[in-house]
Design a binder for these strands. Structure first.
Length: 327
DNA sequence: CATGAGCGA
């Protein structure tokens, strides 16, 4: 539908729409508040399924403003809609400037409460309390229109109490930024994980064994369900932890090879295991598929190892065999 | 403990 230029600025973007919401339903909902010029739910061209967002065009700017002020986060078909001014400039939406991350929210803080609290610092482009089936996940985002509002919100709300919860409020960091920081932190680890400890190990003995590398802050030996013992040990410096790992890892203790390495967070370890299992699955898949290449005209100096090296950048290789021609 | 996702006719 064509909307004349003079009405374009009275357009709201409606996000987080339930897939079953129809134009009709949206029209009823919005025109109950202010007169609506037109509605457009964006749909897949082929399947006509809703893409989960729509435009609501009003005749007057004040009408759009009124809808934005009173209807944001209203549930439709059980799902909270997310209202914003239509902003076609993708950079302004996603550059991350003015975007604030909030964590340690009280479970009872909902979208509207959050919005009300933070709109005192300046104009909000969008905000959202992250949630799942169990309700709030206790963290949120608020995207301010300008940097001063962002700075003030962080200045005043970081560390402040909201419903007995001390908030963390900081600038939003993209996945990439966060990853880099975590990597950095991981490279300066002070906690070590120790595996294959043998049977007769306890906290005190483990501390003694490792104390020569530096001051230990905490030691914990645990036994898993199969009776194997493992432990965590934290040092007061990265140097000590690093040295302990370097010197003790792989050490033969009563015929068992000790493992000593950087202690990972549970989520990190699980992610690693998952990745390993997926790689294994992938390898098996290709093995079954028998993705075999036949290569001829190799020169005489090419052996299994060289051929493997040459092809290793294309993916994991399960088997390489160079056959020698009879002379 | 936590760092999103979104722009048409």
């Amino acid at each position: 539908m064509h909307v004349a230029a003079e009405y374009r600025q009275a357009s709201l973007y409606v996000g987080d729409l339930h897939a079953d919401v129809s134009e009709d339903l949206l029209f009823k909902k919005f025109s109950a508040v202010r007169p609506v010029l037109s509605i457009c739910i964006c749909r897949d061209l082929v399947t006509c399924r809703s893409l989960g967002y729509a435009y609501v065009n009003f005749l007057q700017l004040e009408d759009a403003q009124k809808a934005l002020d009173t209807m944001n986060f209203d549930p439709i078909k059980g799902k909270s809609i997310c209202l914003m001014w239509s902003q076609r400039d993708a950079y302004l939406r996603t550059s991350g400037i003015g975007n604030v991350f909030i964590k340690n929210l009280d479970k009872s803080i909902d979208n509207k409460t959050l919005y009300e609290h933070f709109s005192s610092f300046g104009k909000i482009l969008s905000s959202k309390v992250m949630s799942d089936d169990h309700g709030s996940r206790c963290y949120a985002f608020v995207h301010f229109q300008n940097q001063t509002a962002t700075d003030r919100a962080i200045q005043e709300m970081n560390g402040a109490l909201l419903k007995d919860c001390r908030l963390f409020v900081g600038r939003f960091k993209s996945h990439k930024d966060r990853e880099a920081k975590l990597q950095n932190k991981a490279s300066e680890f002070t906690n070590v994980y120790i595996k294959n400890l043998g049977d007769d190990m306890d906290d005190e003995r483990l501390r003694q064994v490792f104390s020569k590398y530096g001051k230990t802050l905490s030691v914990k030996v645990m036994t898993d369900s199969s009776g194997k013992s493992k432990g965590f040990l934290s040092f007061d410096s990265h140097e000590a932890a690093k040295k302990a790992a370097e010197e003790m890892n792989g050490k033969d203790i009563n015929g068992q090879l000790l493992f000593v390495g950087r202690a990972q967070k549970k989520a990190e370890r699980q992610a690693e295991l998952k990745q390993m299992s997926e790689q294994l699955k992938q390898e098996r898949f290709w093995q079954c598929r028998g993705a075999k290449l036949y290569i001829k005209n190799l020169d005489e100096t090419t052996d299994d190892e060289k051929l493997r090296r040459e092809f290793s950048s294309f993916g994991s290789i399960s088997r390489v065999k160079v056959t020698q021609e009879e002379r």
